[in-house]
């Protein structure tokens, strides 16, 4: 066991092979990496969370799993909003590629809204954003996600005067 994280510690052989093929295709060392430095100390920054676990409020529309069962190449590219008061009791998980049991037992395993609130209360960071966002991470063709969903989330981050974003892929 080295000091570096093994990206394939928990993947099957088939998944590893697919991941390596996609990585080879996607990697482009010449591509410019966008960069926005955090201009305030963490203790004054507002932080929002984005989870790809397919978390929706129970009162909200669940992520569309039936559509993916009908067309397994297409996952639901929409998003859902949670608040900084949302708890595990409030949510449902719609994601056919993870074991949902863990998130249903404790949302913080994939969407750490309570943990973020506690760190803010303890003064370790400025403020938890009023809104946090979830998408469902199985998206093979990102066209619609990038065209429809991401601009709406970005508008929400702006409206919430967010400084920093923690993305939690699952």
């Amino acid at each position: 066991m080295g000091d570096e994280v093994d990206s394939y510690r928990f993947t099957s052989r088939a998944t590893t092979r697919i991941a390596r093929a996609w990585i080879k295709r996607e990697a482009d060392p010449a591509r410019l990496i966008p960069w926005t430095p955090l201009t305030k100390p963490l203790s004054e920054s507002t932080i929002a969370l984005i989870s790809s676990a397919g978390v929706a409020l129970k009162e909200d529309r669940p992520f569309d799993q039936q559509g993916e069962r009908q067309n397994p190449w297409r996952g639901d590219p929409s998003f859902r909003v949670a608040s900084n008061q949302t708890t595990t009791e409030d949510i449902q998980v719609g994601h056919l590629h993870i074991n949902k049991r863990y998130a249903e037992q404790d949302m913080n395993s994939v969407f750490p809204i309570q943990r973020l609130g506690e760190l803010a209360e303890q003064g370790e960071m400025g403020r938890a954003a009023a809104e946090h966002y979830s998408i469902m991470g199985y998206i093979l063709d990102p066209t619609e996600l990038l065209r429809e969903t991401v601009p709406q989330i970005i508008a929400g981050l702006r409206a919430g005067e967010v400084d920093g974003v923690v993305l939690v892929p699952v």
């Binding site: 966008p34 984005i50 790809s52 991401v150």
Partner: peptide, 21 residues
């Protein structure tokens, strides 16, 4: 999520992915 992160950073937010892969 990587592409989503790029868009957010380009839009003026400081972003980090907590990634198991």
């Amino acid at each position: 999520m990587g592409l989503v992160q790029r868009e957010m950073e380009a839009a003026g937010f400081s972003t980090i992915s907590l990634s198991p892969m």
